[in-house]
Simulated scan of single mutants.
Amino acid sequence: MNALEPALAADKQGRCLNCATPLTGPFCASCGQKARIHRSLAAFFSDLVAGLFNFESRFWRTQPMLFWCPGDLTRRYVEGERARFISPIALYLFSVFLMFAALGFTGTGMDGFKVNGLAEIAEVSRTELAELDRQRAEAVRAKAPTAELDRKIAAKREEIQGMDNVLNGRFSTQLDNAPNDAPPWLVNGLKKVARDPRQFMNHVQEAASKYSWALIPLSLPFMFLLFPFRRRHVFDHAVFVTYSLSFMMILILLGSLMVVVGASAWVPWLLLVPPVHMYRQLKGAYGLRRRSAVPRTFLLLIFSFVALSLFGAAILALGVLE
C-alpha cells in the first residue's frame, strides 16, 4: 500500500475528508464519498471508468424513454426519480454540444455559406441566359420586337448576379444611401454584415451555441399559458421544456447526419416528428386525455414557433452588433 493511502482513509478524528462528517461505514452518510480513497494513477482511471459507466447506465435508461415515452420520463423525473435518469439540463447541454459539433463537422451548419446545389442552379441559369441571348439575336435579325426578351434577359442576369454574390460571400447593399433617421448602430452593423457575411454567420452560429440555454426561459411563459387554470410548479414546466428541447436538438443532429449519408430526401419527413412527440409528452407528463392534449399540442406548436422566432431574432441581432 502506498504510504499516502492511510492518510487518505480519514482524518485523525475519523471524519470524512470531503465534508468532515463523522464516518460510520465505508461511505460518508452526508456526501456519499468513500471513507477510503486512494492517491494513485490506478484510482484515477478507476474513477473515470466508474463515472463513464454510471453515465452510460443512466443514458440508456433516459434516451429510449425520451424517444418513445417522453411524458413518462418527464413525470417520473418530476415525481422524484432523479438518480435513475440523466437530469434535463445535463441532457440538454450534452445534446446542444453534439448538435453543433455535428453541424460543424458535417458542413451542414452556417459556417462558410455552404449552399448545397446553388452552383449547379447558377450554371443552369447561365445556360438559360445564353438561350435567351440567342433568341434575341434572331429576333433582331428578323426585325421582331425584343421588349419581352429584354425583360427576361435583365431578370435572368440579376438572378445570376445574386447567386454569384451568395456563392462568393458578397452582397449588394444600398446602405450608403440609408435614411438619415436610421440608427447609426444599425446602419454600421448592417454595413459590416454586407462587407463580410461569412464572419457574420460565424458570429450567429457562435451566439446560437453560447446562448442556446435562453430557449428554456423563453419557453416557460408559454407553458403557463397552456395551463391557465392549473396550478403548476415552475420546476415541472422547466423539466418538460428542457427534455423536449433536448429531443429536438437530437432530431436536428439526426437530420444533419442524414444529409451526410445522402438521405436528404427523407429529411423533410422529420418535420412530422415534433408534433407527435409534443403530443405524447404533454399527454403523459400532465395526465391529459386526448381531447385535452390535441388542442394543447396545436397551441404548443404555435408557441414553439414564437419562442424560436424570438430567439432567432436575438441571435441575428447579436451577430449584427458583434
Score class of each variant (00 low, 15 high):
3 A>I: 01
4 L>I: 12
5 E>K: 02
7 A>K: 14
8 L>D: 00
9 A>D: 06
11 D>K: 12
17 L>F: 05
31 C>Y: 03
33 Q>R: 05
34 K>Y: 11
35 A>D: 05
37 I>C: 08
38 H>R: 04
39 R>I: 01
40 S>G: 09
52 L>K: 02
55 F>Q: 03
58 R>I: 07
59 F>C: 01
62 T>L: 02
65 M>A: 10
69 C>I: 04
70 P>S: 03
72 D>K: 09
76 R>H: 15
76 R>Q: 15
78 V>W: 00
79 E>W: 00
81 E>D: 09
83 A>W: 13
92 Y>I: 03
92 Y>A: 02
98 L>T: 03
102 A>T: 15
104 G>A: 11
107 G>W: 14
111 D>I: 10
113 F>M: 07
114 K>Y: 07
114 K>C: 04
115 V>E: 03
118 L>H: 09
120 E>C: 01
121 I>H: 12
122 A>H: 13
124 V>Q: 13
124 V>D: 08
127 T>R: 03
129 L>R: 10
132 L>V: 01
133 D>Y: 08
134 R>D: 15
140 V>G: 05
141 R>K: 13
142 A>T: 06
143 K>M: 14
144 A>Q: 15
146 T>G: 14
149 L>A: 05
150 D>I: 00
150 D>W: 06
151 R>C: 08
153 I>D: 05
154 A>N: 12
155 A>W: 15
157 R>T: 14
159 E>Y: 15
166 V>H: 10
169 G>D: 04
169 G>I: 04
177 N>V: 06
180 N>V: 03
183 P>I: 01
188 N>V: 00
193 V>Q: 10
195 R>D: 09
195 R>Q: 12
195 R>E: 11
201 M>I: 03
205 Q>K: 12
209 S>H: 13
210 K>A: 08
213 W>P: 04
215 L>R: 13
216 I>E: 01
217 P>M: 09
217 P>D: 04
221 P>G: 06
221 P>L: 04
228 P>Y: 12
230 R>P: 02
233 H>W: 08
245 L>G: 00
245 L>D: 02
246 S>A: 08
249 M>E: 08
253 L>D: 10
254 L>A: 12
255 G>S: 10
262 G>Y: 09
264 S>F: 13
265 A>F: 15
267 V>W: 14
268 P>T: 05
272 L>D: 04
276 V>Q: 01
282 L>H: 03
284 G>W: 00
289 R>W: 11
289 R>C: 10
294 V>H: 00
296 R>V: 02
297 T>I: 01
308 L>F: 15
312 G>N: 10
313 A>W: 15
319 G>D: 13
322 E>M: 13
